[in-house]
C-alpha cells in the first residue's frame, strides 16, 4: 500500500462552506499558467491529509489564474497545490490560495472551499516569457515564470481535480472540485518558481522545475459532487453528495 499523507487535520483554519450545495460558476475566458516543480517527499507527505497518497515522485503545482469574466467580476487567483492520489484517481490538494478580488475570494471560499486570502496577484504576458506573482501586504509570496513559450496541442494539457479542505454541514471534509476546462490554446516552456521563505509552506520549497504551461481556457466550476473524510483513505471515506444535498 502506498504511503498516506500525515497532516494532522486542523479544521479551525479551513474555509466554512455553507449548506445547500453550490451552483456552477462559469469563468470565461481565463488564462492559466501553472509551473510544475518537484518538491521534497517528506514535505509532500506532511502537507497531505491521511485520505490521500502522494504522487511518486512528489510534485507541487504553482498556479496563476486570470479570469476576465465571472459572476464576481474579473479576478486573479494564485494557488499552490500538491500532486496526490485519492485511491487510484489523480488529484491535487490545494494548500494555499491568493485572490485579488474580495467578492471572488468569498465565493470561492464559501462555495468550493478554496482557502483564499486577499492578495495582490499579477500576471505579465510576453512573447518571450510569462510571469506571475502573488504578494500579501506588499511582501512577495511566490512568483512563477514560463520561459520560451512554444505552442502545443490543446489536448496535451491535463488538470487534476482539486481536493480542498473545508468545514461543511457534514463536518470537516475534502471537497472534490473538478472544473470543466475548454482548452483553447496552450504553450509550454521552461519553468522558474521562487518562493519567499515563511510566506508559503516551506515544506513545498521548489527543488526541481519540470515544466510550465500557459493556457487560454473556459472554466466552469461545478457544484460539488463528492466529499471525502480527510482522515480516512479516500476509497473508504468518499461520499456522493449530489443525491442528498440540494
Amino acid at each position: 500500500m502506498p504511503d498516506f499523507g500525515t497532516l494532522a487535520v486542523d479544521a479551525a483554519g479551513a474555509p466554512a462552506v455553507g449548506p445547500g450545495g453550490t451552483q456552477p460558476g462559469a469563468l470565461t475566458p481565463a488564462t492559466h499558467p501553472p509551473g510544475n516543480c518537484g518538491s521534497s517527499g517528506a514535505g509532500q507527505l506532511a502537507v497531505l491529509p491521511p485520505a490521500l497518497h502522494p504522487t511518486s515522485p512528489p510534485i507541487a503545482i504553482w498556479q496563476l489564474l486570470q479570469v476576465e469574466e465571472s459572476p464576481w467580476g474579473p479576478f486573479r487567483l494564485a494557488s499552490i497545490r500538491v500532486g496526490a492520489r485519492a485511491a487510484t484517481k489523480s488529484r491535487s490538494f490545494l494548500v494555499n490560495a491568493f485572490v485579488d478580488n474580495p467578492r471572488a475570494g468569498a465565493a470561492l471560499r464559501e462555495s468550493w472551499g478554496f482557502p483564499c486570502i486577499e492578495a495582490d496577484v499579477r500576471l505579465r504576458v510576453g512573447h518571450d516569457r510569462i510571469s506571475g506573482w502573488a504578494s500579501v501586504a506588499g511582501a512577495g509570496c511566490f512568483d512563477v515564470e514560463l520561459e520560451d513559450p512554444t505552442p502545443i496541442a490543446s489536448g496535451s494539457v491535463y488538470y487534476a481535480p482539486s481536493m480542498n479542505l473545508a468545514r461543511t454541514p457534514r463536518g470537516t471534509k475534502l471537497l472534490q472540485v473538478d472544473p470543466e476546462y475548454l482548452v483553447k490554446t496552450v504553450a509550454r516552456g521552461g519553468a522558474q518558481v521562487r518562493h519567499r521563505p515563511g510566506a508559503v509552506d516551506d515544506r513545498l520549497a521548489p527543488t526541481w522545475p519540470i515544466s510550465a504551461t500557459f493556457a487560454t481556457v473556459d472554466i466552469t466550476l461545478p457544484a460539488i459532487r463528492f466529499v471525502c473524510d480527510p482522515d480516512l483513505p479516500a476509497a473508504q471515506g468518499t461520499e456522493n453528495v449530489t443525491q442528498t444535498d440540494s
Binding site: P2, N36, H53, T55, S56, P57, I59, G83, R85, T88, K89, S90, I152, S156, V157, Y158, A160, V186, R188, I210, S211, T213
Partner: peptide
C-alpha cells in the same frame, strides 16, 4: 496509477 504520468506534468 500512483506513479506520475508524463501527461500530468509535462504536456
Amino acid at each position: 496509477p500512483q506513479q506520475l504520468f508524463v501527461k500530468e506534468i509535462y504536456p
